[in-house]
C-alpha cells in the first residue's frame, strides 16, 4: 500500500515525511529526517537511547510508529541547545564527565530535561528512578546523577 504522508513539528520546525506502517518514529527520525542523535540500542524500549518527547511526554521513539505522530510535536536531542548555547544539562554533563562513550548521552539528556520540567528539585532517588529506563554501561551512573543534580540547582537559580 501507499506510504503514509505525515506532517509534524520536530524541534519547532514543521516537517513532512512519508513512511511505511511498520517504520517507527526512531526509523523516521534517523533514516528519513537524518536526525541521528537519537540512538538505537535495543528496539524494544529497554535502553532509552532513543528517548524523545512527544507532545511534551517522554517516550522511546522506537515504541512509536511514524504514522502515529501526525499533527504532533516532537523534541529530540538536536533541539536541546539554543543556538550556540548549550542547555544547562548539556553543560553540566560535560563539566562532570557524565559521559564516557556517549552513546546513551542523548537519551539521558532528553529524559533528564523532561524530569526537570516536571520536578525542578528532584532527590537523588527520584532522579535514579526517573532515569531507570536509560541504560548506561560505562559510567556506573554516578556522574550522570551528579550532573543532573547540579543542572537542577543551576536552573532553579535561573
Amino acid at each position: 500500500m501507499a506510504k503514509h504522508h505525515v506532517e509534524a513539528i520536530v524541534n519547532g520546525d514543521p516537517v513532512e515525511f512519508l513512511c511505511e506502517t511498520e517504520e517507527t518514529l526512531l526509523d523516521v527520525l534517523r533514516d528519513t529526517l537524518h536526525l541521528t542523535g537519537s540512538k538505537e540500542g535495543c528496539s524494544s524500549g529497554d535502553c532509552g537511547a532513543c528517548s524523545v518527547t512527544l507532545d511534551g511526554r517522554l517516550v522511546c521513539s522506537c515504541l512509536v510508529l511514524g504514522c502515529e505522530v501526525g499533527g504532533r510535536t516532537i523534541e529530540t536531542i538536536e533541539g536541546m541547545a539554543k543556538g550556540e548555547t548549550l542547555h544547562p544539562l548539556q553543560q553540566r554533563f560535560l563539566e562532570h564527565a557524565a559521559l564516557q562513550c556517549g552513546i546513551c548521552t542523548p537519551g539521558f539528556l532528553v529524559a533528564s530535561k523532561a524530569l526537570l520540567e516536571r520536578n525542578p528539585n528532584p532527590t537523588e532517588t527520584e532522579i535514579r528512578y526517573w532515569l531507570a529506563g536509560n541504560l548506561c554501561r560505562c559510567t556506573g551512573y554516578d556522574k550522570i546523577i551528579t550532573a543532573v543534580q547540579d543542572a537542577a540547582g543551576a536552573m532553579r537559580k535561573g
Binding site: 538536536e78 554533563f93 556517549g102
Partner: peptide, 14 residues
C-alpha cells in the same frame, strides 16, 4: 564533548 551532548557525534550506525 559538545558533539556528544548535542547528538552530532557520529557513531557506527550514523
Amino acid at each position: 564533548g559538545a558533539d556528544k551532548v548535542t547528538g552530532r557525534a557520529r557513531f557506527g550506525a550514523d
